[in-house]
């Protein structure tokens, strides 16, 4: 019935929407996004530069070792 629809249909329709957005984009590769290139030139230098590491990279936490800090 109409009441029992397949959630997969929604996933597929939304995914197709993003692939349409990609297909119509003027630039289709991240390295061809000129605004990103401009940001590196004016500000962060280049990927993995010290400033890029400081602002765009992170570390992870071994949560299996975190004790009961809140309780």
């Amino acid at each position: 019935t109409d009441l029992v629809q397949d959630r997969t249909k929604y996933i597929k329709l939304r995914a197709a929407g993003l692939y349409r957005d990609d297909a119509k984009a003027a630039a289709r590769q991240s390295h061809n996004n000129a605004a990103v290139g401009e940001m590196y030139k004016k500000f962060a230098g280049k990927p993995l530069s010290p400033l890029a590491e400081e602002l765009f990279h992170t570390r992870y936490v071994d949560r299996s070792k975190l004790g009961g800090m809140r309780s």
Binding site: A15, D21, A25, A27, R28, Q29, N33
Partner: peptide, 26 residues
């Protein structure tokens, strides 16, 4: 506003496989 501009690779991040596809293009 340069921060509103994006490539097709950026937009497919929302799909499974999209990050991979974007990474391989670059």
């Amino acid at each position: 506003n340069p921060l509103a501009r994006y490539s097709g690779a950026g937009t497919i991040f929302g799909n499974t496989g999209g990050v991979m596809e974007a990474a391989l293009r670059t």
